[in-house]
């Protein structure tokens, strides 16, 4: 994947986080808006939130680490490690989203 594609995805996921993250914070922290959690759209938006926030986090960390440790070989190692960590947390998070929201 080209570097510019990675960064375009970084900005797209950033925008997605702006929407789904705001939904997450409002639905969980404001008692008036707790009803959002009972809608069908909420678990779906949280799935999107999980994927977007993990991509954004791992790519952000990759950008920092690649700048601190330049070179193509270290870049590849950093990419592989962060991709694996991201996928592990995504599978883990998705499993528990299904555990929490699957029972209704």
């Amino acid at each position: 994947m080209k570097e510019s594609t990675k960064m375009l995805l970084h900005y797209i996921t950033g925008f997605l986080i702006l929407i789904t993250g705001a939904t997450h914070l409002i639905a969980n922290n404001l008692v008036r808006f707790n009803w959002i959690k009972d809608t069908l759209w909420y678990p779906m938006s949280q799935g999107v939130f999980l994927a977007a926030v993990l991509y954004h986090a791992m790519n952000g960390l990759r950008v920092i680490l690649v700048e601190l440790f330049p070179g193509s070989s270290s870049g590849k190692i950093i990419s592989i490690i962060l991709t694996v960590v991201g996928i592990i947390f995504f599978v883990f998070g998705l499993y528990f989203l299904l555990v929490i929201f699957g029972g209704r």
Partner: peptide, 24 residues
């Protein structure tokens, strides 16, 4: 932006583990 990003990542990963292992 970078320092805040790293801070949020630490919280995010801890939060996923917390919700998954304790709340679920």
């Amino acid at each position: 932006q970078r320092i805040s990003g790293v801070g949020i990542i630490i919280f995010l990963l801890a939060h996923i583990l917390n919700v998954g292992l304790v709340y679920a």
